[in-house]
Amino acid sequence: MTEQESLTVIKEMINRTRTNFKDQSFYYLMWGWLVVGAVIVQAILFNQQSEYHWLVWPVMGITGGVTSGIYGRKKGKQAGHSTHIDRAMMFVWVGFILYLFCVLLLSASGKFGPQGWNISFILIMGLYGLGTFISGGLLKFKPLILGGIASFVLVVLSILIPTLVADFNGALFMLACSIIVSYLIPGYMLKRS
């Protein structure tokens, strides 16, 4: 084998392991639409004065978690390899879920006061932005980074203009906007990339 042939082998193998990140769009689109669906169902139940309106979130979380698990396992089997980015992404999103659980627990504990739910909505919007921002950086995909920043902007707006999240419907609307800018729009752009 000549030196030039060695170089060709190296280049060829590196090109073969270039990960196609398009598959990652599945998670953003699935979770994005699940959250939008949950927001709509909760708004309907809340406005009909159902006391069980909050139940949509655990149902959505379990549905999304199981679907993500099945999809991830299937894709992992098909790929036959794992990259350092795969591991970093897994830690980002597992950390996201653990922190989300902490925010929900804190909100349920009543430690935020009677209007505690709107503080937790703002924290969750920031969390959506954080997850997307970091994963955008890892995947080197600008729309995800910008989607994360857009979600942070919505957090700042919600703090500066408290009337936006003063009532429950307003907070739900802001949460839906946050998921649209940080998951759905970048998710569709990732799918088309």
Binding site: M1, E12, T17, G80, S82, T83
Partner: peptide, 21 residues
Amino acid sequence: QQLRLQIITLLMSVESAEFNF
């Protein structure tokens, strides 16, 4: 050696790889 170089380059680019990959 071609095959050993192919294998080591593949493994440089990933965290772990299965035999079938």
